[in-house]
Design a protein around this nucleic acid. Structure first.
Lengths: 121, 121
DNA sequence: CCCTCCTTTTAGAACTATTCTAAAAAGAGT
DNA sequence: ACTCTTTTTAGAATAGTTCTAAAAGGAGGG
């Protein structure tokens, strides 16, 4: 029984989808006030390793953890800083067609204004 | 006369195109052995600000400086770790067509095997 | 039960690339 | 030469993450 790992996973799964380590830490402390940040990192690594979640690093150095491990693209809101999903249809194929380099994988993050912030404007 | 800034720029311009700060520091010390790393960073910021060079951060956290400031895409070789240019034709338009989110800008880095490493294999 | 082994957790130190600070030095303009 | 601004320096500080070694916890066998 790996309670703390389960708690880390649960916090992420019950979230909006994309959280940073310190936010996960804050939320998981509601259940386990004594938990230490290193444990959160341990478990985030383990969960990433086992394919339950996905690790996303932005160019500005912010690390997010994504409750959806399957491949999809992301966008970062320039107004509120939230990371949201941005499913781009047939992006991988389109990308490979536009270059002769063999594409092993790619890191893409769009900078956008998310619908929430757009509505407020 | 801003000798050290010019030296930083020159080192980058005479390079293969994409260098990390510590590599620039090493090379520029051949001209100015007493230069300090903070000066390299100062000047890299200033040169980025003035549009002479471009700052590229990869998802793994490595910061590269690019002697070509005009927009173009990049690829990171999974074998040797070098950052190379990867011009993708009409990428920006293509990207905007595939989503309804307004694209302010984007960060894209392909992971590839560069021609050099491919030849060696 | 109890022993052993393996995994998880903890506390806190360490790390590393970058940034900050305050003072010294250098340059430019008058 | 004087003043003002920019550049450079040395070294401390920062921040997010990782490492370390020890302690705790849990699983399974005897």
């Amino acid at each position: 029984m790996v309670q703390k790992r389960a708690a880390v996973l649960q916090v992420l799964q019950e979230s909006e989808g994309h959280l940073q380590a310190d936010e996960i830490y804050k939320r998981v402390k509601d259940y386990y006030p004594k938990m230490v940040l290193a444990t959160v990192y341990n478990n985030l690594h383990a969960l990433t390793e086992s394919g339950h979640i996905r690790h996303i690093r932005t160019m500005s150095g912010a690390d997010f953890y994504d409750k959806t491990p399957t491949p999809h693209e992301h966008a970062l809101c320039t107004v509120c800083g939230k990371l949201i999903d941005a499913d781009l249809c047939d992006f991988a194929e389109m990308l490979q067609k536009s270059t002769t380099l063999p594409i092993v994988s790619y890191d893409l993050i769009l900078h956008t204004v998310c619908p929430d912030c757009n509505d407020k404007a």
